[in-house]
Design a protein around this nucleic acid. Structure first.
Lengths: 337, 337
DNA sequence: ATCGCCTTTGCAAGCGTGTGCAAATGCTGC
DNA sequence: GCAGCATTTGCACACGCTTGCAAAGGCGAT
């Protein structure tokens, strides 16, 4: 048997004995249609298994309801929880998420944005990587909205959501000092994402303001294994640190495991550790890590709210930028509290 | 300024001095178009920032290139790694993933499938939950392909990918016995997913074949906290188990943490533990858990390969079913080895 | 009965694309 | 020079939907 095609509004109209427009209006919120007509249409549609073709609707309305999520390393705890929150909020506001994987290669994000354009996505939300200026301009010109999450230094135009990374770094420094720590260190990856660097610079600057030095070590990707390597390097220095602020929870877990299992150090007695993101694992009792919570729900809410706003995508060529607060989640990896 | 609309093939055709069909053919692989014409078209398209409208193309071809991923708890390590693998494979074969969040509520999966139909997805891949039979039939009738992953007991029709859960359970039992364990237990959630139950039943059956009993405890959702609760219940029994097979790595992490930190037991000396999924955290040195690896890449490959196959979605009303192997990853949570 | 108003309905145009068909073009071999 | 053929091109229709517009119908007030 040849693949059957989907039911069309025409067939529903015939079955219900009305015009095709009536069917269309029945499924268009706010359209003018008599209750009796609507009922007949609904019944016919139900019987035939009719579903509005959103491809065609998007074509007409010039509004597909699709929002592209562009993200790399989506298997990571923080990323996946953000994806979950965003898709959920999108669904709640009647939109739908399209997911595109990127890698660190050049043009990866640009290719993703091209794909978003092809599917006439209403908007794209970029969680990773740096789009090229020319392509973001193309998106905006075409009326496609753009949201950048945690991509601090990106060019203006898109809507940008960031955290108070530097201020958080300064708060955690205070906590370390109160705990009596004096030999400070910062564990980072070599990726150089704006938010990671903001935490590093914020921490170093806050320490400098107190006349303290920070041992900074960077290695590899922003993950657990890199954390182990960084810890090895830091803990074999002549001046062994007694406090390590990690750019990321994954790094922090690696740092803790290396400190405990390879260097037989006790956390927090001999070493205080803090991370960033508040991924689920930090609350597990093997880690019990003091960290900053990414306001995942708030980020998703703000991003989706922006998409729902009326007005052109580029009405204010400047774009807008908001900064959300990262709350300090106090657990057991720092003394005192 | 009013939101500008996207560039159409018409405009490209005018700029290139050819007909609209020529533009269309230029972007249709395998279409007949002279090299010179193609070149002119490509240049005009590039200059204007033209991108084929996949909504319209999908409308014409009756093939959108969209594949729906239907999944609950997508923030979970195993789920998110599967999402990553599947989206990547889809992209490699020229398709694109649409992501829909479901919860445990009734009809949640059905609503997701309806959404897939509205966007005329070429296929839907279900990673969680149980679709209603009527809706899956609707999908198949409409030529939409369906893939069920780890949903063992689902009705026939869709393409089904499962693991050898029961056999794995039997293998891990052997390992426990070899390690000298005699008081066996199984830690499960109350969710009752087919694959989780298959592991439980396989373990109990294999033990029975050796004349051994298994203490089974189930609680809550399939996560870390539930694992802790289950461990508390198991380890306060009169007959304290010396081996626990967990339906899931998350449960296993909870079990290990409870055993170590609440009951001060040593793993694997006093208690052997095994899990399932091989999520990244199991390789972290705080856990170092012996577990079974979900063949995530193979699952994604098989699923996408199925979608690429020619032939109607329902040509063989029975659907097909394959069973993949879960490899035992030997680490340090079981004695010996 | 007539008018004006509001609600509902059908018509038809249009969204941006793919593709069958026939016409046009160029080339080969005689 | 011409028939025969392969390649390329344009026309026009189709895909399934939305929506402006005008006509139709109902109803109360005059």
């Amino acid at each position: 048997m040849v693949t059957k095609v989907f039911v069309s509004a025409q067939e529903v109209a015939e079955k219900a004995g009305v015009s095709r427009s009536a069917v269309s209006r029945t499924f268009t919120p706010g359209a003018s249609v008599a209750p009796e007509t609507r009922k007949r249409v609904m019944e016919a549609a139900e019987a035939l298994g009719y579903h509005v073709n959103h491809l065609a609707r998007g074509l007409m309305r010039n509004e597909s309801g699709i929002v592209c999520l562009i993200v790399s390393e989506m298997g990571t705890p923080y990323r996946s929880s953000l994806i979950r929150a965003v898709t959920q909020h999108l669904q709640n506001s009647g939109k739908i998420a399209m997911l595109i994987n990127t890698d660190r290669s050049d043009g990866s994000v640009d290719r993703a944005l091209r794909q978003a354009i092809r599917y006439r996505a209403d908007a794209s939300i970029i969680l990773s990587g740096q789009p090229d200026k020319s392509i973001t301009q193309l998106c905006l010109k075409n009326g496609q909205r753009l949201v950048l999450i945690n991509r601090d230094d990106a060019q203006p135009g898109p809507f940008r959501i960031n955290l108070d990374d530097k201020e958080a770094a300064s708060r955690i420094l205070t906590a370390f000092v109160r705990a009596g720590c004096r030999r400070l260190a910062f564990a980072n990856s070599e990726v150089g994402t704006p938010s990671l660097m903001a935490r590093e610079h914020g921490f170093v600057a806050a320490a400098a303001a107190l006349g303290m030095e920070v041992a900074v070590e960077r290695f590899g990707p922003t993950g657990y294994e890199a954390g182990k390597v960084v810890a090895q390097r830091l803990l074999t220095r002549k001046e062994r640190p007694d406090a390590i602020f990690c750019a990321n929870d994954l790094l922090a877990c690696g740092v803790m495991d290396a400190a405990r299992h390879q260097f037989m150090m006790s956390v927090p007695d001999q070493l205080c550790v803090a991370g960033f993101d508040d991924i689920e694992q930090t609350s597990w009792s093997s880690y019990d890590l003091t960290t900053f919570a990414q306001p995942v729900e708030a980020i998703a809410r703000e991003a989706v709210a922006f998409l729902a706003e009326p007005g052109s995508a580029e009405d204010d060529g400047q774009g807008r930028s908001i900064r959300l607060h990262a709350e300090l989640i106090w657990r057991g990896s720092i003394r005192g509290g």
